[in-house]
Computed example of a mutant assay.
Amino acid sequence: MNIFSGHFRPLGTPAPMIDPFGRMVSYLRVSVTDRCDFRCTYCMAEHMTFLPKKDLLTLEELERLCSAFIDKGVRKIRLTGGEPLVRHNIMYLVRALGQKVRHGVLDELTLTTNGSQLARFADELADNGVKRINVSVDTLDAQKFREITRTGDLNKVLAGIDAAQKAGIHVKLNAVALKHFNGQEIPEIMRWAHGRGMDMTVIETMPMGEVEEDRTDRYLPLSELRRDLEEQFTLTDNDYRTGGPARYVTVEETGGRLGFITPMTHNFCETCNRVRLTCTGTLYMCLGQNDAADFRDLLRSTDDDAVIKSAIDEAISRKPKGHDFIIDREHNRPAVARHMSMTGG
C-alpha cells in the first residue's frame, strides 16, 4: 500500500488529483451538449444561439477525455447539458462509461436531466449502470411549468420519472427556488417527492449568462426558505452526502431528505471536489470563474494520452479557492457571461 495525503491506496492505482488547496478532485461533470428542448427563464434566453456541430467534441472524443480523467483518479461522472438526452446517439457514451462502472474503475455514472426524454431512455440507462439521476422540476402546476420552461410539458416529465423509477433508478428531484414563483409551493413539491421515495434538493439561482428577467426579482435566499419551512416541518441536519454540494436535512414529518445548494448565501467551495467539462472540450476548474483549459485542440492534435493527462495536471494546479457570485441591485449582471447550459448543470 502507498500513503498519499493521509489516504491509503493500492499499488498501481492512480494518485488522486489534489488541487492547490488540498482538495481531492474525484468528480467530473460533463456537458454533452449546450442544446435543450426547454428554455427555462432563469437558465436561458428565449432565443438562444447554439454552437455549431463542428465545435462540439464527438462522443468518441468525450469518451477518450473521460477515460483520461478516470485514469487520473476521477471516481464519479455526471452527464449534463443543456439536456443530455437530446444529444444524438448519447447512449454510445453512456454504454462506454457504464462499462467503466462494471469494471470497477469508475464508482458511479449519473445524469442530470429535465426528464422530457426519460420515458424513452430509462430502461437503457438502467441497463448501462446508471443507478441515480437528478430530474429538474420547479413546479407541479402544469401551466406554471410551461411558463417557467417556455416549452416544457409537465406530463411528459412525470411520465419519465415513472419510467425511471420502474426501471429501478433512484430519482432525486431538483427545484430552483424562485421568489414570486414557487417559494410557497416548495412544501407541496417536497411532500410529493418524499411520498414517492425521492430525495429533493432546492437550489439558489445563480448569476450566469444574460437572460431577459431581472435576477434580483427571482432570487430567493435558501436561508429564508429554510426559516419558512421550519414553521411547518422539523428539519434535522444529517451527514448524508452524494459527492455534490448539497447539504441535507431529514424532514421528520415525511421521513425524507431535503438538500440545500447555496452558492449565494453560503458557498460550498471549501469542500469542492469537482471540475466541469463542456461539450466543446473546455475544462472549467470552477463554475463561477472564467479560467479554463482547452482540450479540444489537444485531443485533435495528439494520440498520446500522456500529453492529455499532463494537461489535466496543469489545469488542476490552477483550480481556484472559490467563486464570487453576487446578486443584488448593484450587481445585476451575470458573474460569468456563459449560460449554465453551456457549462453544464
Rank of each mutant, 00 (worst) to 15 (best):
M342L: 14
T242R: 07
P334I: 15
P334M: 14
I203K: 04
R218K: 10
R241K: 07
M91L: 15
L229I: 13
G183L: 07
S5R: 10
R247L: 14
Q184R: 10
E314P: 01
V30A: 08
L229Q: 02
E63P: 02
M48T: 14
A122G: 12
P245E: 03
M200F: 03
A337P: 04
D34R: 05
A122N: 11
S310W: 01
V130S: 03
V101Y: 06
R300N: 05
I203T: 09
G281D: 03
K100P: 09
Q289L: 03
P20Y: 09
E252C: 00
T139K: 00
G259H: 00
V211M: 08
V101C: 14
L85D: 09
A164T: 03
G256W: 02
E270I: 10
T242V: 15
M24N: 14
G22S: 14
A335N: 13
R276E: 04
R247C: 09
I189P: 00
H7V: 14
E213L: 13
P52Q: 06
R227D: 09
E61A: 04
M206D: 09
L158H: 00
R150K: 13
K172F: 11
I203H: 04
K309D: 07
R35W: 03
F50Y: 11
D138W: 02
H194M: 11
R64A: 08
E124M: 03
P16S: 07
A159S: 13
F8W: 14
D297V: 15
S26W: 01
T282Y: 10
D303T: 12
V137N: 07
E46Q: 12
K309P: 10
V94C: 07
I77K: 04
D71R: 14
E204P: 04
H266N: 11
N290E: 12
H170D: 12
R274L: 07
Q289W: 02
N332G: 09
I326Y: 02
H323Q: 06
Q289K: 08
E204T: 03
A306M: 04
M208H: 01
F8K: 08
F21E: 15
D55Y: 08
F4P: 08
R338Y: 10
R75C: 13
A337T: 13
L173S: 01
T80K: 04
I3G: 01
A311K: 08
T149D: 09
K53W: 04
R75H: 06
C40L: 09
D138Q: 06
V32A: 10
M200E: 00
L222C: 00
R218L: 14
N2H: 09
P14I: 12
L222D: 02
V275C: 11
L57Q: 04
